[in-house]
Amino acid sequence: MARHRKLRPEEEEIWQAVARTARPMHAPERMILPGEADTPPVAPNPFHPKEPAQRPVLPPFRLGEKTRGKPAHDLAPTIRQTLAAAPVQMDAKAYGKMTRGKLVPEARIDLHGMTLAEAHPELIGFILNAQSMGLRLVLVITGKGKLKADHGPIPQRVGALRHQVPQWLRLPPVGPSVLQISEAHLKHGGSGAYYVYLRKLR
């Protein structure tokens, strides 16, 4: 039977230094507290579907409720509305007679059937000549336009001349010569023609 002797101080110091660097081969067992089952905990199953997160409750929504009290559309004004909203530059009494078809145009030009490239110089020459002759009221016939097959991504306007002529009449070189533009009365062509009231030459 081996006899155990007490370590000397220098041997005790060496032993403590070695013990501090040693690691246990087995992890110490966890102490089971009273009331705990003596069974290891079950690891969660990664393949078990999780409970879906509860979604916040949204208030009920009705289609179109954000547009209540607002106009259903925001379309550009028609040519008739634009011309009617323009300020009256000519004599008010003469303007009333003109819009009612009571004034007879002193000259007319028919652009119906022309392309935009053909009609523009014709209109310029007609207006400048009419003013140089001292005429005041002339009639410009554009036609109402015909509905054509439209296969492009951008919708085409019906009646290109009818839309373009009022723009031309406001621009140089004929803009300074024009005092008033109005849609013609039915007896003179209605929406397919325009009254153009010219300024006097000074």
Rank of each mutant, 00 (worst) to 15 (best):
K144H: 14
G125F: 00
A85Y: 11
K50Y: 02
H112S: 11
L63V: 11
L171H: 12
K93C: 05
L83W: 04
M114G: 01
I32P: 00
D74C: 09
P52Y: 00
Q167P: 05
G35K: 02
M98S: 08
F61Q: 09
V88Q: 05
V42Y: 01
V88T: 07
Q16V: 09
L128A: 11
A76W: 02
L7K: 05
L179C: 07
V165D: 10
R100Y: 02
L161V: 07
P52H: 07
F61N: 04
E12L: 15
L123K: 01
P44E: 03
F126C: 09
D91V: 03
F126W: 03
A130H: 00
I79D: 00
R5F: 14
V140R: 04
R162L: 03
R20K: 10
R136C: 06
L201Q: 15
V158T: 13
P155E: 09
L116K: 03
R20E: 13
R170W: 02
I79A: 07
G64D: 00
R8M: 11
P105T: 02
H26P: 04
E11Q: 13
I14F: 14
L179A: 14
R80H: 12
L123V: 05
R136L: 07
T21E: 15
A130N: 12
Y194W: 00
T67N: 12
R100M: 06
I109Y: 00
V88F: 09
L116D: 01
D150N: 08
D74V: 12
L169H: 04
K144F: 05
K93F: 12
M98D: 05
K70V: 11
Q156G: 12
A130K: 03
L33A: 12
G143C: 11
V88R: 04
I124V: 15
H112T: 12
L75M: 02
R199W: 04
L186G: 12
T39K: 11
R199T: 04
K66G: 10
F126V: 03
V196L: 01
G145K: 02
A37Q: 09
A22R: 11
K70W: 04
Y195G: 06
G134S: 01
G175E: 08
T142G: 05
P71A: 08
A94V: 10
K93G: 04
W15Y: 13
R157P: 15
Q131D: 07
H151R: 15
E118V: 06
